[in-house]
Nucleic acid binder design. Structure first.
Lengths: 242, 242
DNA sequence: AATCTATGCTTACGTCGTAAGTTTGTCAAG
DNA sequence: CTTGACAAACTTACGACGTAAGCATAGATT
């Protein structure tokens, strides 16, 4: 018995260096986010997550209720990453900064967009986010009803756009060329003339997907800001109009 | 032998009435859509789908490559359900009708919103949809670049809003009251004053979730149309402005 | 020293998608 | 009428999944 113990301890000593840190809920959630970032949400299984933490799958259940709780947890972590601008000079720039922050964070965790949407209304982070928007707009002269509608419109656009973006079939110049080369034969020019025109347009205009990526910017910021400003200007008119 | 045949035919006659129809790709996809509508996308498994069709799971593979192909197939079916308005008097009503049609179809198949987003750019239905929007806008005096941005903004909003909507925690008056009663204690009034104000607002304004449902309308059409009209008006200005 | 509690591990069950191989029902050619 | 081929169904089996149930151990409390 004593011998067996000794041997167990011995062979565990160096490989368990990582796993000697005591494995808290925070460590579990952190590893889950990292794994989803690296390998995608589908690759996030209890067994693989345990493995990454140097632990068996079932041990995770001492720190989180079940996998669903992990998903809730990482959703709230990501939402909590979205910074709420504190010192914006006016409501428009406040909204713009918040939207940009959300856009950035969501693109850093592409799996999170769909996941957040599928678990609406759970976490406290989202509540704060929500309260701040309504409060800021009300402080800028929006009625409660208008602020409510404004929130829905802005948030629908932000999440909808980003969801489109992370699932867009190409993110680099090379991918775009390959996808277009594969797809064009299936799309007869005469049936879809506008798509063809647009392809050329896209090739010409967004010539630099790679450059944007190299600059650490989303390749589709321009399109994002177009829609966002359209909405913000519309909201301003709605406030001043009626 | 003759006897055996007779018996087989005999006992199969009524229970196999459904499964005697020869099980085509169309029947598989139709059943898949029905099952997703009834029990949710997670409940759609090859085994259950086979069962529903009176067949073993593996038999489905004679008609579809794999489950992924089924998902692609049902996505294209749903997208194909969205009617493209043919005789609209002007571009705005054309876009409004198209948006309303999409909204309706997506709400009839709530699971489809996230699924469509996760499989962008595959089906031919979506291509037609896309081509029509760009073409209509160009015909109404929009530049190609503006039409492209307009499409992204509108589609982001439509899908983003509907995705919010199908995951919204309450769809009926009773659900709303229960969810609010459960959630309010966790949201201290003084930390989230605007949420509280909004709750009262929502309770007062959207008093009739049930009524809308009874009338066969989405309870959130008003909010949807608010955002959509905001965007359409903004697009009109963008076209006329520059 | 005895006991409790927290935290890890092992085993096992039912479900999933699907690869591989086998049976069966239909129909054309000999 | 037999035969042989082909399509479409079925059977079996594998590895991965989430997790219920129970066991082991080590540190803290009594």
């Amino acid at each position: 018995m004593a011998k067996a113990n000794e041997k167990t301890k011995g062979e565990a000593k160096e490989s368990a260096a990582k796993s000697r840190e005591p494995l808290t809920r925070e460590r579990v959630l952190g590893a889950a986010v990292a794994m989803a970032d690296e390998e995608g949400l589908d690759a996030l299984s209890m067994r693989k997550l345990g493995q990454k933490l140097g632990v068996e799958a079932m041990s995770l259940y001492n720190h989180v209720k079940n996998k669903d709780a992990i998903l809730d947890g990482i959703v709230d972590m990501v939402v909590g990453e979205i910074e709420i601008p504190a010192d914006a000079p006016d409501w428009k720039t406040a909204m713009r900064r918040r939207a940009a922050a959300a856009h950035d964070v969501l693109l850093r965790h592409p799996w999170s967009v769909a996941l957040i949407e599928s678990r609406m209304g759970l976490g406290p982070s989202r509540m704060g986010y929500f309260d701040w928007v309504i409060g800021t707009l009300r402080g800028a002269g929006f009625s409660l009803d208008l602020a409510y509608n404004a929130f829905l419109t802005m948030d629908s656009f932000i999440y909808g756009f980003t969801l489109h973006e992370v699932n867009w079939p190409f993110q680099t110049d090379e991918e775009r060329d390959r996808v277009l080369a594969e797809t064009m034969p299936n799309i007869p020019m005469e049936d879809y003339p506008n798509i063809h025109a647009l392809m050329e347009h896209a090739t010409a205009v967004s010539a630099g997907l790679d450059e944007a990526a190299a600059a650490g910017v989303s390749p589709y910021v321009a399109e994002f800001e177009f829609g966002l400003d359209l909405i913000l200007d519309g909201l301003e008119r709605a406030r001043d109009g009626a």
